[in-house]
Simulated assay, not measured.
Amino acid sequence: MRIVVADDAVLLRECLVRLLAEDGHDVVAAVGDGPSAVQAVLAHRPDVSIVDVRMPPTHTDEGLRAAIAAREQLPGTPILVLSQYVEVSYVADLLADASGGVGYLLKDRVAKVEEFLDALDRVAGGTTVLDPQVVARLLAARQRRDPLAALTSRERELLGLMAEGYSNSAIAKRVSLSGSAVEKHIGNVFVKLGLPPDETQHRRVRAVLAYLRA
C-alpha cells in the first residue's frame, strides 16, 4: 500500500516508516504538521494515511482537523488516527460522512504490531475501526447530548403520548396499563430528564419540549 504518515514526534514517525517499509508498504510522505498532512494526502492520494491528533501549529487537535479537511477535499480517502488522546467532537465529524475507511486507535492500546497492521489494512479496505475507549466516549457524549437516552422504550412511548396531548388516564387506556403504573412511569421520566417539582414551571410541558427537541 501507498501510505502517508503524519506525526510531529520524529522518533515515532521514523519508527512507523521503518515498520511499514519492512511490511512491504510504500511510505510516499512522512510529515510533521497538519497543513503538510493535508497537502501530502491531496498530492499523493495514498491508499491510507496515518495521522496523529496533536501536531503543529496548534498542538491541540490539528491532526484531526487535517484528517477531516483531507476527506472533505478527497472524499472517502482512508484515514487512521493514531493518538494518545480521544477528541470526541472531531471523531464524530470524522465519522459523519458514513463512507467508512476511518480508524481511531489509542497509541498505548496498540499492544501488538500485527494488530496495528491489521487495523491499517481494514481501514484501507473501507472499514471503520475504533478503539473501545473511543466508542465508550462517543456513547457517553451522545447520552449527554440526548436527554432521552436514559429513558426506557416504555417511557419514551408514554412521553410521546404526552406530547400528543393525552392525559394520564387516556394514556392508561391506550397502552392497557393501570393509572398508577402510568403515573409511576411518567414520574420516572421527570426524574431522568432532571425535572423536579417546580411551582413556577409545568413539568409535563418541559418534558414534552425535551421530547420535541430530541
Rank of each mutant, 00 (worst) to 15 (best):
M1A: 10
R2F: 08
R2Y: 08
V4K: 02
V5E: 01
V5P: 01
A6H: 02
A6D: 09
A9R: 08
A9L: 15
V10C: 03
R13G: 15
L16W: 05
V17R: 11
R18W: 08
R18I: 08
L20E: 01
D26M: 07
D33F: 03
G34H: 00
P35I: 10
S36F: 07
A37D: 00
V38C: 04
L42C: 10
P46G: 08
P46S: 12
S49T: 15
I50P: 00
I50G: 05
V51S: 03
V51F: 13
V53G: 03
H59Y: 14
D61A: 07
G63E: 03
R65L: 12
A66S: 14
E72A: 13
P75A: 09
G76Y: 14
T77Y: 01
I79P: 00
L80H: 01
Y85W: 11
Y85D: 14
Y85F: 14
V88Q: 04
V88H: 06
S89A: 14
Y90H: 14
A92Y: 06
A92T: 05
L94M: 07
S99C: 09
Y104V: 08
K107Q: 11
L117N: 02
A119C: 10
R122L: 03
V123S: 01
V134A: 10
A136E: 13
A140T: 05
Q143D: 14
R145F: 03
R145H: 09
P147T: 00
A150T: 05
A150Y: 01
S153V: 11
S153M: 06
E155K: 07
M162S: 08
E164F: 13
E164N: 12
G165P: 12
Y166S: 09
Y166Q: 05
N168A: 12
N168D: 15
I171F: 03
A172P: 07
V175D: 01
S180R: 09
V182G: 01
E183F: 11
E183H: 07
I186L: 15
G187F: 02
G187S: 12
N188L: 10
K192A: 01
P197G: 12
D198L: 04
R204M: 09
V205T: 14
A207E: 03
V208S: 06
L209R: 13
Y211W: 13
R213N: 12
